[in-house]
Design a protein around this nucleic acid. Structure first.
Lengths: 332, 332
DNA sequence: CTGTTAGCGCGTTCAG
DNA sequence: CTGAACGCGCTAACAG
């Protein structure tokens, strides 16, 4: 559709294609005067380098894959945005893949990334995808896992310390004295839920004083249901929910039964989701450094790409922190 | 890094490269027996087609660019997710670009997409980007605009009818009789704000009974501030906010002054953001078909790509609908 | 510092 | 229906 590209420019500028290629990729190898002239010629001819050709020739694509379960979950949206920004800044394109935690879809995404010869991929893996990850590696794609750990993986990873997060919430809720605590959790088959629970149990002085509710979906609706149950059952009014959606729901459920937060109950959430937290009664929550997670993931893939074989894999664990707001003020 | 690809497979299967290429791209041109054999050989050799080569050769990349202002805004996250899913299903990769409404960043994204020879791009354009869009077109990238209209654009677009949305909210708030209405809006320099406002003014029987508040940022915090002002100033207690964040804030601000929603006031938001809407008092809001928007955008680019010159541009306007919840029940 | 040259892996003519 | 050959636009040696 466009001219012949490089050679066209070379001709018009009175230099060779190599010189044009160099002014693009290794400017320091070109005399300033020549470089200037070539640059102007490129402008004048509306020259647009063809990345596909470069990729084919060089064997590596300036492309990073990002595989997330969903984007409507603000947690993943924030991480993805951070990745996109960091990658863009470093000259990499980002191929977005939404897996919906569906193994088949995830697989097709991996195939796609392999065909594109993506230089790297940052993935929030679906439970069962361990073996699949190797296929990607085989075409030279470097991998960084986010937030979920896969047993068979021996590469780089970034995550947050969920045990510490659970402990943080627990200490806060128990800081006013007393022992009772209600834990509203998702299925323990989810590592995050398991870890946050462990943080709670390890921190509570008396484990038997921890009443647990488990919900399969971790949605607001489930939270409402459980909130009512808490009120009806007389479970402790200090409640820790393993995500903000549940916390939001619990506060409503409690209110449905006439219990006001934070007057009659204290509720701590997890995630620091902007909108969840800014509701009618703002919620105290365990915040995760989402942007840092994404940025670090990019740093890790790129360094793995650049360093080549001299690379040592590493896992970076971020510490969460507590954000105290209305739903569970200090010493409540 | 891998073998020679196509030719390797051809050799191993005892056919020519053309036959292998055909079994991939035009299966019907290959004898069933041959095809079967080739397919198996590809499996056996772990053959991964090289998209870069195909792109270079064919001149077009099975890649769609998506340029959005941000992902932490659930509205864009939802649209982006829908686009990613629809594109993936049709065999296209999605290049994610987050512009933060920064002209320079946006431009660099366009350049990147041009270099990749993206077949199409779906963009939520930054105000000033009209002229820039042409550069992309020049390398054959088809464009569809989402949600924001750009004057100089003569291509496909998808959007929602914001005037209708404003009217919807207004009619609901006034359905119980009475004339007064408070409008909490963002800057009218934003087309959406302008349109929603128009919907209000065109619908209210008496324009002078519409009290307006304007905030530059449309955030929860701004909503809180304005909510207090409304209470203090004695403005009408039927409030329409042009997004859910503002509505959330207004409800809090009102409450800070002792006004309870929906007992003492009615509040309608805009956007139907999941988390915003599920707070302590769920909010009545104008919902936009976000997923449909994204899906339709993909349909439009792809048909533009496929139909080639025989394509007629079109704009699809979706109708929003009202979701009635607690903050403004029927006849309040 | 600049020019020459040889493919990267694949799609697509054309003959057979 | 299949096979042989050419070149897409560019990078990476190597010479000069």
């Amino acid at each position: 559709m466009k001219g012949i590209g490089l050679s066209r420019v070379a001709e018009a500028a009175g230099v060779s294609v190599a010189t044009v290629s160099n002014t693009i990729n290794r400017p320091h190898l070109v005399a300033t005067a020549t470089r200037e002239r070539v640059l102007q010629t490129m402008q004048r001819l509306d020259f647009v380098p063809n990345r596909a050709a470069a990729t084919l020739r060089s064997g590596s694509n300036k492309l990073l894959g990002v595989v997330v379960p969903e984007l409507v979950n603000p947690f993943y949206a924030a991480i993805t945005e951070a990745i996109a920004v960091a990658a863009g800044r470093r000259g990499y394109a980002v191929a977005l893949c939404v897996s919906h935690d569906d193994a088949a879809v995830e697989l097709s995404h991996f195939e796609m990334l392999a065909e594109q010869r993506a230089a790297g991929a940052i993935v929030v893996p679906y439970s069962a995808s361990g073996p699949r990850l190797r296929q990607l590696r085989m075409v030279g794609t470097h991998l960084v896992l986010v937030d979920r750990v896969v047993d068979q993986h021996d590469g780089c990873a970034v995550a947050v310390d969920d045990v510490a997060g659970g402990a943080l919430a627990t200490r806060h809720l128990l800081s006013a004295g007393g022992e009772g605590l209600t834990l509203v959790n998702g299925p323990v088959s989810i590592p995050q839920c398991r870890d946050r629970r462990r943080g709670v149990l390890d921190t509570a002085a008396d484990r038997s004083a921890v009443i647990e509710f488990t919900s399969p979906h971790m949605t607001v609706d489930e939270g409402v249901r459980i909130g009512r149950e808490i009120a009806d059952s007389g479970a402790p009014r200090r409640v820790f929910c393993t995500n903000d959606q549940l916390a939001l729901g619990v506060i409503r459920g409690l209110r449905d039964r006439g219990l006001r937060t934070p007057l009659d109950a204290s509720v701590v959430g997890y995630g620091d989701l902007a909108l969840a937290v800014e509701g009618d009664t703002s919620i105290t929550t365990v915040a995760q450094p989402k942007a840092a997670l994404g940025a670090e993931a990019v740093t890790k893939v790129l360094s793995e790409i650049d360093e080549g074989d001299a690379h040592r894999h590493s896992t970076m664990i971020f510490e969460p922190h507590l954000v105290v707001r209305e739903s569970a003020p200090l010493g409540s």
